[in-house]
Amino acid sequence: MFVPRDLQTASCALAIFLIVALAPVVAVAQSDPLPSWNDTAPKATIITFVEKVTKQGSPDFVPEAERIAVFDNDGTLWVEHPSYTQLAFALDRVKMLAPQHPEWRETQPFKAVLDGDMKTLAASGEKGLLELIMTTHAGMTSSDFQKVVSDWLASARDPKFKRPYTELVYQPMVELLAYLRANGFKTFIVSGGGIEFMRPWAEKIYGVPPEQVIGSSIKTEFRMQDDTPTLYRLPEVNFIDDKAGKPVGINQQIGRRPIAAFGNSDGDLQMLQWTTMAGGPARLGVLIHHTDAAREYAYDRDTEFGRLDKALDAAAITGWTVVDMKADWKQVFKD
């Protein structure tokens, strides 16, 4: 097709103008380490902190070996309502194993699970929930349990979003994990959830390898089964990695005090205190506040799962950053 010379010249000029004009915009978009975060105070605080502790010559510079960041899991990295994912797993396990245990039909808290009576189950308290976990998570080798978890996650769906639980991770937090690692941080999950429940999938979903997952555990013992060495899971509590247990778990498994901690509930209070109230170089404490009923959930002080009460009050005193999910995140999930 013939195009007049003047029009060709004008088109070239326009193309050059657009390239020059849009180049800064493209550069800014590419350099944004947290694209799913709105440009509000929490994002600026996080970026400023990272720049301070990674800049050579800065009074707040921290060597790479000491750049430890710890993250709660439930409600901080993925959805924890209407109940913890691991609890949903335990309830499904009760239903699956029930034919082998006819006595459960008359025994609490198993009867409540089989009847769908969540009120009675909740009334059984921590003791009842612990009994469910011990019964459904033990009596097998560690490798067998990992397969059970992986198979369940492949088929289970969240009741609200109708999606696999591993798709209900918070995209802004996945970006934050990657941003910290790109700046020399080692990232750890420190959760009240079961350590062997999280390890099979944490690396694929979060980029956190199994050795950097800290969680609650049940006792295991070494056994030879058919001339094969195994670790067998026993129905006994070994360690509860929640509340005051979190700093203990961090000290036992990491051996260094973190300089950044991220949580969302009172179960993370002591972890944030341990991280931020030690003096020394710059330190960062962040709480994720669930305020977005449209895209996820809105809750804080009045909930059974992920209650944010004492920690929210402490944030105002200590200067921890509180992320308002509705205001500070452009998107919640990847899609």
Rank of each mutant, 00 (worst) to 15 (best):
M1D: 10
F2C: 02
P4S: 14
D6W: 13
L7R: 15
T9C: 05
T9H: 05
S11H: 12
A15V: 11
A15C: 05
F17H: 13
V20H: 06
P24G: 12
P24Y: 11
V25I: 13
L34F: 09
S36W: 07
W37Q: 06
T40C: 03
P42E: 01
P42W: 03
A44G: 10
V53M: 05
T54L: 08
E66Q: 14
R67L: 00
I68F: 01
I68L: 04
A69M: 04
A69E: 07
V70I: 13
V70R: 03
F71S: 09
F71G: 04
N73T: 00
G75F: 00
W78V: 04
S83E: 13
S83A: 09
Q86M: 06
A88W: 07
L91N: 07
D92S: 12
V94C: 10
P99S: 04
H101W: 08
E103H: 10
W104N: 03
E106S: 08
M118K: 14
A122M: 13
A123K: 15
G125V: 08
E126V: 11
L130R: 11
L130C: 01
T135F: 00
T135Q: 10
M140C: 15
V149H: 02
L153D: 09
A156R: 07
R157P: 02
D158G: 04
D158N: 15
P159Y: 12
P159Q: 12
K162P: 00
R163G: 01
Y165N: 02
Y165P: 02
T166N: 09
L176E: 10
G184I: 10
V190H: 02
G192Q: 03
G193K: 03
G194F: 06
E196S: 13
F197V: 00
F197M: 03
R199T: 11
P200D: 01
W201T: 03
E203W: 03
K204S: 13
I205C: 03
G207Y: 06
V208Q: 12
V213I: 14
G215T: 11
S217W: 04
I218P: 00
T220C: 09
E221W: 01
E221L: 02
F222W: 12
D227N: 14
P229R: 05
Y232C: 00
E236C: 05
E236H: 08
N238S: 15
K243S: 12
G245P: 13
G245A: 12
V248Q: 11
G249H: 09
P258Y: 00
P258S: 03
P258E: 02
P258D: 02
P258K: 02
A260N: 10
A261E: 06
F262Q: 06
D268C: 09
L269F: 15
Q270N: 14
L272E: 09
Q273S: 08
T276G: 12
A278L: 09
G280Q: 10
G280R: 08
P281H: 06
P281K: 06
G285I: 06
L287W: 06
I288K: 06
A294E: 15
A294Y: 06
A294D: 15
E296V: 12
Y297H: 14
Y297F: 15
D302W: 09
G306Q: 03
G306D: 04
L308Y: 02
D309N: 14
D313C: 05
A316E: 14
A316K: 15
I317A: 13
I317E: 15
T318F: 07
W320A: 00
T321K: 08
D324I: 05
K326D: 07
V332W: 01
F333G: 05
K334E: 11
